[in-house]
Design a protein around this nucleic acid. Structure first.
Lengths: 265, 265
DNA sequence: CGCTGCGTTGAATCCTATCAACGCTCGTGG
DNA sequence: CCACGAGCGTTGATAGGATTCAACGCAGCG
């Protein structure tokens, strides 16, 4: 385990797209935003939305803010309004008394940070940005579902399904930690992250960017980074997937699913 | 790991309290029910309820059914209405291809089984009764919060808080599996179960009934039952807690919290 | 009576952590 | 420009924790 460096939180969050904030008349700016709006992408794959509902999702990135990596988006024990991760990666983590860090969940673009139901109890786990991130307030989305003058059943369903999908992922993490070997854990996690990246249109074929160090993988999978390194080498030697820089390519996805005891899609 | 016995599901669930179903005029029957109504007990500790809301919770046990142990309350992949566990213990579990069982969550009286939001996606993990259980339909509770003619904000808050507490417990399980030694895991889990039993009034002092075999503990904590046995002996030798039959007594709760890196209450 | 479920114990093996050291790349400052 | 350090990946050696296989005791029960 490596010593934990003090998180250098960015004290001056800036607007997400300052260049676009001034009234530029760029060609089809809305189209660009839609393409890069992961929450819109995810939800429209889950449920059918009315035009009004789509518009709510389109407005989400308006009030986005960016933070540098290592920033604590939610401190441990802090209660705050839910937010949506628009770009970058973050994690739920917990630092034990002995200094060990356990990552309990990865947050990818399109994921909700915090509770979508009220009242929200203070979170026990801290949320920390792994990369530089762009985060938007999710209250417009949450508020649109209960007291909305035109009812928004699509969004309500979507939020429920997103929360349930999150529970499934946490349970999967328990399966990894409780019942799998290091070799299987890594394979299983890479599969999960691949599928999640694909769901937001950020994985072409078996190819995606994985902005994680081996140490972060280790902190999530409950193993030492030394052992993570060795097992990772074995996996690459076996040709399950390749790693070049931060780019991952699934070479034998079927074999990976077999190794990891992957359940369906 | 021991071979998994085929669950002998009870095909004939019976009414929970058939003796009380016939119109007996026992003295203060409502009082007895309240005392033994774990969901009422839990929720009234969380939030303030109106008289109408309390009445909703009182009515929950009316349509309770009992099942024998080993019964699959929710099969893997099955979608169904949420239910409430009124008595007995159950677990969320997953059987891997290799036959290994991983318990991802313990369900105690007062816990909700299934999703309280709609639509509910098919559950990926099976819910199985560890003991004989009594289960009630939770739909009256859920239905009372969105389309209720007298609004029930207390119940709505309670359901949200219950769901969040569940997430906290799952995260705690990840902390156990990912970052703790066998000794710490067992201590931490026993502490959690003790506090949960206390919250529903089923733990006097440091004393409570733990209807788990060492093998179930092992399946939850991701270790072999042989090792569970050995570590359990060490813990008892150290005097952290005592086990007599299925009765557990916390002898040094402070030392336990210290060992397990227990966070707050 | 024998069976089954559960707890217990021993021995050998394997997996994983720990300690330690080295190479590499990149950004920074002298 | 080069030196330096930080961050990250890699490798070796050793120790310790956990699994596995095996066997036994014991209570409850048909």
């Amino acid at each position: 385990m490596r010593p934990i460096d003090t998180p250098a939180s960015s004290l001056t969050p800036s607007l997400a797209h300052p260049a676009k904030a001034d009234g530029t008349t760029a060609a089809s700016p809305q189209f660009l935003i839609d393409e890069q709006n992961p929450i819109l992408k995810r939800i429209t794959r889950l449920v059918c939305l009315s035009a009004i509902e789509v518009e709510v999702l389109r407005q989400i990135p308006r009030l986005a803010r960016s933070h540098s990596r290592q920033t604590e988006l939610f401190a441990q024990g802090e209660a705050g309004p839910p937010r949506i991760l628009l770009s970058g990666w973050a994690v739920h983590q917990h630092i034990s008394r002995s200094g060990r860090r356990q990552i309990t969940q990865f947050l990818l673009p399109g994921d909700v940070i915090g509770s979508t139901t009220r009242p929200s109890a203070p979170s026990v786990s801290a949320v920390v940005a792994l990369t530089s991130v762009v985060v938007a307030d999710a209250r417009p989305l949450i508020g649109a579902i209960d007291g909305a003058s035109p009812p928004m059943p699509g969004l309500a369903s979507a939020i429920s399904l997103l929360a349930q999908a999150e529970t499934v992922r946490i349970r999967d993490h328990i399966l990894r930690l409780g019942g799998q070997t290091a070799y299987e854990r890594i394979t299983h996690l890479v599969l999960e992250l691949y599928h999640r990246m694909r769901d937001i249109g950020m994985a072409d074929g078996g190819d995606f960017r994985l902005p994680l160090t081996q140490e972060m993988l280790a902190d999530a999978l409950g193993m030492s980074f030394v052992h993570t390194n060795r097992v990772l080498q074995q996996i690459r030697r076996d040709g399950l997937f390749a790693v070049q820089g931060r780019q991952v390519t699934l070479l034998q996805p079927e074999a990976m699913r077999n190794v990891a005891d992957w359940a369906a899609v």
